[in-house]
Design a protein around this nucleic acid. Structure first.
Length: 431
RNA sequence: GUGAGAGUAGCUCAGUUGGAUAGAGCAUCGGAUUGUGGUUCCGAGGGUCGCGGGUUCGAAUCCCGUCUUUCACCCCA
């Protein structure tokens, strides 16, 4: 009976695993050099935890089950609720600001499509307990730090930055009533995907022509300062605060040297309601992929999970879209493989296999990645095997072993020399 | 959950109007090659044509169902 892999899942054969590890290791290194510490939680939690933030419709989009004690559980579709739970549990004991990262494996019961599977990995970084936009800037910097390291340039991607606070205050000043804000966010979030006319008509249906015109003008703003042409800020009001935050953030990003990656874009809304301040997404410049990552400030989340009102800001990046983009940009063409060896030991005759096994074990004991041929096939074939496994050196055990010697061959240059086995094993790197 | 396209060897694909034993390249394994790799040459293995049903003298080919997959919608934490 043939059993297929489950829809929307991936098998990681060694080749794919090597690539996956390369991505995950990059995330990890970028996190650590930016001062984040790793955490993780269980891969399933109480189903209720995911309903707190996102409501009941979320249940349709995750894998849930009952355990034998009739508890409603769910495989984690995101890790932020776990983070909130973990931080809340120890909030008083943790030094602030809390800078944590995680590389969770997540599952969502959605229909797979481009850049979106039912099981995936996501890089998460969060800074908790710091109100300053410096924290938002640091989250953005860490994100760019990674993307830049893997070879993406300002010609490939842009960090589009806006502010939920800005959007909310602008909409209120324009005259949108509070109860219409959330449905409006959903519509505004779709602006780039909809034809301009459809967007305009739908918007007019929701708020009327006059407001719609001003909202469209706001959404088209190229700079932070030009917003005041549409709505006026007054001293001390929320709009002034929001503008100041965005300007401060831009200033920090400039100090950090990544301005060329960043752009103000009031079209960035982010789907869910819990964002409270700066929000951002990274997009490919061509714009034919979904967002590479998204994040922002969510100052109420810990409180919503039964903790104190502690501010937080963070980012999440999935592996699927990232991999598609890197492949399109030719950044995965270089060899990413787990098949490498320091030494490949070649016995020429069957009776020399004993020596090959002993020598290989000796090299491994000294910490060198080494392998031997299982059978004493022709030298030519064994050298070919060594090449295929990307061996740096071959150690040939043949006739010269009668005099206690082996031949060490540099696979890159082809040069080789005969050396006493004892000397070689004593200090392999010398040869 | 809704809609559209696709499914032939491990991979990429060919297969005439429905016709006889379903092919190629790459990959794998073996040999040329009993002391010199990345090239080359020769050979082999590998298929329930996704699965089930129907039409037909005859189906990889046509029809229906189903599964998988791709893309879009919903949603996007």
């Amino acid at each position: 009976m043939k059993i297929l892999p489950v829809k929307g899942t991936r098998d990681f054969y060694p080749e794919e695993m090597a690539l996956h590890n390369w991505i995950v290791d990059g995330w990890k290194k970028a996190s650590i050099r930016n001062g984040f510490e790793e955490y993780d939680g269980p891969i399933f939690e109480y189903l209720q935890m995911y309903q707190v933030k996102s409501g009941d419709e979320i249940v349709e989009q995750l894998f849930s089950f009952k355990d034998r004690g009739e508890r409603d559980l769910a495989i984690r579709p995101e890790i932020t609720p776990t983070l909130a739970r973990m931080v809340n549990q120890k909030i008083n004991a943790l030094p602030k600001p809390i800078k944590w990262f995680s590389l969770p494996r997540l599952c969502r019961a959605e229909r797979p499509q481009k850049g979106r599977l039912r099981e995936f990995f996501q890089w998460n970084i969060d800074i908790i307990g710091e109100d300053s936009v410096l924290a938002d800037a640091e989250v953005i910097f860490t994100t760019v730090d990674y993307l830049r390291e893997v070879g993406l340039t300002p010609k490939d991607i842009k960090v589009k930055i806006s502010s939920r606070k800005l959007l909310a205050t602008v909409l209120k000043k324009i005259g949108v009533p509070d109860e219409k804000l959330n449905p409006l966010y959903t519509l505004l979030d779709k602006k780039v995907k909809l034809p301009a006319e459809v967007f305009s008509t739908t918007l007019t249906e929701q708020v009327g022509g006059e407001m719609a015109g001003r909202i469209i003008a706001f959404m088209g703003s190229q700079t932070i300062t030009s917003i005041e042409n549409i709505v006026k800020a007054e001293a001390g009001d929320q709009l002034e605060v929001a503008i100041k935050e965005l300007e401060d953030c831009a200033c920090r990003l400039n100090q950090m040297g990544i301005s060329d990656y960043c752009v103000f874009d009031p079209g960035i809304v982010r789907g869910l309601a819990y964002y409270t301040g700066i929000v951002f997404e990274v997009h490919d410049i061509q714009g034919d992929l979904r967002a590479i990552c998204g994040g922002g400030r969510y100052d109420n989340l810990l409180r919503d999970f039964g903790g104190p009102a502690v501010s937080a800001t963070g980012m999440g990046m999935g592996d699927c879209v990232l991999e598609i983009l890197l492949r399109e940009k030719g950044l995965l063409d270089k060899k990413i493989t787990s098949r490498t060896l320091d030494y490949y030991v070649v016995p020429i005759a069957g009776e020399l296999l004993d020596e090959a096994v002993k020598l290989t074990a000796g090299l491994r004991t000294k910490g060198f990645k080494s392998a031997f041929s299982y059978k004493a096939a022709g030298l030519s074939k064994q050298l070919k095997n060594a090449s295929e496994q990307n061996a740096k050196f071959c150690v040939i055990i043949g006739d010269e072993f009668k005099a206690g010697n082996v031949v060490v061959k540099d696979m890159a240059s082809g040069q080789q020399k005969t050396v006493p086995l004892e000397d070689f094993l004593g200090n392999p790197e010398k040869f």
